[in-house]
Amino acid sequence: MFESLQFSIVDMTPYSRPIYFDMIGLYNKAVWPMHVLAMILMFWLLLISIRPGQHRVSSAFWILGAAWLWTGWIFHMQYYSSINWAGVAFGYLFLIQGGLLLALACIPVTPVWNVSKKWPVLAGRLLLILAIVAYPLTGLLEQRTLIQLDMFAMTPTPTLMATLAFLLLLEGRIKYALVVIPLLWAFISASFAWTIQLLEVYAILLVMFVWLMSMVTDIIKFTMSKLQSKKQ
């Protein structure tokens, strides 16, 4: 069993940086004008995060679910798989996450907003702006052409970052069930990005770090409340 795991990150990145950018360019060209719809969803998600109403949680899950499904089915399975043997498997991972998000959008018991002004909420909002607006533009610093830029709901990294950022805005433990695949993908994606020296590695590491801190905060809070209840 261990034998089959004998491949490294390098083995999983059998393409060069220019070829990766070219592939994104070909994909963006082929799926145009889906970007218009993606842009509408993008601003809708931003609006929801700024003016959170309880009925809007489901809307956000619909948007994120659709983004993961599209990215898995079209980007990974149809395009990325042409340069990476693992593309189809990654596609399934995205489909599962998309399915989970859509399932939560459908059921009546949805997570509630974290209404306090605690730092994870502020960090979540800032990261959402980073994911949707700022991060895709960093591609220009990597000499990508406009058509080779990443975009929320179209390519994996901004979709991943927006999802992790959005989950920070929520209260309750359900968000931990939704974060497993994104964190796993964050690790895989950061590894690829590191191998071919993409700037996204820093963006992903930042989101992962914020999530880690948020989890530590939650664990401390949980432990303190347990200790207090024992004393009482």
């Binding site: 059998p14 393409y15 060069s16 070829i19 592939m23 070909l26 395009y79 042409s82 340069i83």
Partner: peptide, 13 residues
């Protein structure tokens, strides 16, 4: 052909 020939469907490449 590692990396160098993995160009997907890019006809130019």
């Amino acid at each position: 052909t590692w990396i160098s020939f993995n160009v997907g469907s890019n006809i130019q490449a």
